[in-house]
Computed example of a mutant assay.
Amino acid sequence: MAERFDDPLPWTGEIAAPLRLFETAVRAEWIDDYQHVNIAHYLTICDHANWAFWNWINAPEGTIGARGGHEYIIVENHVHYLDELALGTPIHVTTQLLAHDAKRYILFHRVHRADGTLAATNEVKCLAFDLEARRPEAWRAPVAGRLAAIAAAHGGLETPPQAGAGIALKRR
């Protein structure tokens, strides 16, 4: 069965800095034996934010079929796990566009509890992809224009400290 994604928000031309396109309460299927969100489901939460962003910048074409197979794929992810999330906890994800070019973009998601506590961050690099040809492509013109508008709106935001971080053991 295909996963159901939340209804896309309409494109109005208003661009918040950062965006807030996905909010929910922690779902039972995300909880593990320790009674908190399983490590993998922090990516699930952020993937809902990826889809919310993608559907928003493609509105009113809110489905794969409506877009004729012109989609995106994720080529890189990095998650920082900062705090636990329990069943039913109200959460929202803020999204910042860090960079983009003719066929890629980098988003930075912050997963917050309703009280403002930062629970996780996720940096994700996405690539424009033609599902029929099974190969990368340039963004379609409407998407490219909206990415440029979002980049302008997000240009004044500070780069998150976790952005661009890799995994390493530091010597003391």
Rank of each mutant, 00 (worst) to 15 (best):
Tyr105Lys: 02
Thr95Tyr: 02
Ala138Arg: 14
Gln35Gly: 12
Glu23Ala: 13
Ile106Tyr: 00
Arg27Cys: 08
Ile64Gln: 04
Glu158Val: 02
Val79Arg: 08
Asp6Val: 00
Leu9Val: 12
Glu137Ala: 15
Leu157Met: 07
Pro136Phe: 04
Ala141Tyr: 11
Ile73Pro: 07
Leu87Ile: 09
Arg172Gly: 12
Leu19Arg: 00
Phe22Ala: 03
Pro60Val: 00
Ile91Tyr: 06
Val26Lys: 01
Thr89Arg: 11
Lys125Trp: 13
Gly65Asp: 01
Ile31Asn: 06
Arg27Thr: 09
Arg104Ala: 07
Ile74Asn: 09
Ile167Met: 12
Glu61Gln: 14
Thr117Met: 13
Met1Arg: 10
Glu158Phe: 02
Gly69Asn: 03
Gln35Glu: 08
Leu127Asp: 02
Phe108Tyr: 10
Asp47Ser: 14
Asn58Asp: 02
Ile45Glu: 01
Leu131Arg: 13
Ile106Cys: 13
Asp83Glu: 13
Arg67Asn: 05
Phe129Ser: 02
Val143Gly: 05
Ala16Asp: 08
Leu21Arg: 04
Leu9Ile: 11
Thr94Trp: 01
Ala141Gly: 02
Ala40Glu: 08
Asn50Asp: 11
Glu76Phe: 13
Trp139Met: 00
Lys125Thr: 15
His41Pro: 08
Asp101Gln: 05
Ala138Asp: 15
Met1Asn: 10
Ala128Leu: 12
Ile73Glu: 05
Leu43Ser: 07
Ala40Cys: 09
Asn55Leu: 14
Gly13Val: 03
His92Cys: 14
Pro60Asp: 06
Glu137His: 09
Ala133Lys: 10
His78Cys: 09
Tyr42His: 05
Gly68Glu: 01
Ala16Phe: 00
Val93Gly: 02
Gln162Gly: 06
Ala2Ser: 11
Val79Met: 13
Ile57Pro: 01
Ala165Val: 12
Arg172Phe: 09
